[in-house]
């Protein structure tokens, strides 16, 4: 097992290095001009100013030299300085990541808590009303455009019924809790500030439902399919022949075996939640990585884009590694 993990780690490192190269080439070979995007037409027409600006950000060096500088800085944990915010990219990421982490984790928990039981019930009572309901919920969840779902929920529960708070992480008059982890729920609980905790929790409800919609559908469908697959197995017949009760068979025999595909999909879904929150964050004015990435992409802020994509690619790779390792733990045959 340790050897298996080690070889996977080496592969992860190689892939991450290749990823930096891809990002670097993409960022530099596309026709968009960061000078125009950042400085605006007036400043861009002043040749001297533009040359100075290019030299300042290293945009006048040849490509390979810029890549080497990027790698060298990277080895010191330095992701460069964002052109737009004039701050180290790493610091920006540290400021924006907790909001996304909190939102993604809550919606992931939500989709697991609803999706797995729903999938199990759909499989056990196949072709019953609950199976059809599960199918409909998952198909609608997968098919709803997140930005539209967000609009509808805001219009109904915030604008119409006025029972949900508006966009943002907390009320505009409220103060964020003292920062320890950057996760408002955790920080306010640590500070014993339950009013802020309730406020932060209330603000999480709508965005996490929106973000969870598609994931919920995927998890329900995978759970159902995987449960059905396992139900056909001989050991289920044996268990029934032994006279075990249905509940015991489902929970004790089928579910553990059906978990493997769910773990794989769940891991990927979590990675997608962390990175796919761009639209949800935009609508809910959520100060997370998604919005930061979007702003950087639109203003062609190359250091920020490269830093973010690299971090995200590494997170992706690590989550994949965790999936593979948990695969190996759930099913020892994988390693051999």
């Amino acid at each position: 097992m340790p050897q298996y993990i080690l070889s996977r780690l080496v592969l992860l490192f190689v892939m991450a290095l290749l990823a930096t190269l891809v990002i670097f080439l993409l960022a530099n070979m596309v026709p968009g001009d960061p000078v125009l995007a950042q400085l605006g037409d007036l400043a861009a027409s002043n040749k001297e100013f533009v040359a100075e600006w290019r030299a300042k950000w290293g945009l006048d060096l040849p490509l390979w030299q810029r890549y080497l500088i990027f790698l060298q800085q990277l080895s010191h944990g330095d992701l460069g300085i964002s052109i737009a915010s004039q701050r180290p990219v790493l610091q920006d990421v540290r400021d924006f990541a907790p909001a996304t982490l909190e939102l993604a984790s809550v919606s992931f928990a939500l989709s697991l808590i609803v999706g797995i039981p729903l999938g199990i019930m759909a499989a056990v009572r196949r072709d019953s009303w609950i199976d059809h309901l599960a199918r409909l919920i998952s198909l609608i969840g997968v098919s709803s455009p997140t930005f539209w779902l967000a609009f509808i929920l805001l219009a109904v529960f915030y604008g119409g019924l006025q029972i949900a708070p508006g966009p943002g992480r907390i009320d505009s008059i409220g103060l964020p809790p003292p920062s320890v982890t950057g996760l408002y729920l955790l920080d306010s609980a640590l500070a014993g500030d339950w009013a802020t905790f309730r406020d932060a929790a209330a603000h999480l409800v709508l965005p996490s439902i929106v973000l969870a919609a598609a994931t919920l559908g995927l998890i329900t469908r995978t759970t159902r399919a995987s449960m059905l697959e396992c139900m056909q197995q001989d050991y289920v017949r044996v268990a029934r022949a032994k006279g075990l009760r249905s509940r015991r068979i489902v929970i004790g025999h089928i579910l553990p075996n059906a978990l493997i595909p769910i773990v794989t999909l769940g891991g990927l879904a979590y990675a997608n939640l962390l990175t796919g929150a761009v639209l949800t964050e935009t609508i809910f004015s959520w100060p997370g990585l998604g919005r930061y990435t979007f702003r950087s992409a639109v203003s062609l802020d190359f250091p920020a884009i490269m830093g973010i994509t690299l971090i995200v690619a590494v997170v992706y790779l690590i989550i994949n590694l965790v999936i593979d390792v948990s695969y190996a733990l759930l099913d020892p045959r994988v390693v051999r």
Partner: peptide, 8 residues
Amino acid sequence: VLCFPPII
């Protein structure tokens, strides 16, 4: 290519 999140 697959190790980058598609939307980003």
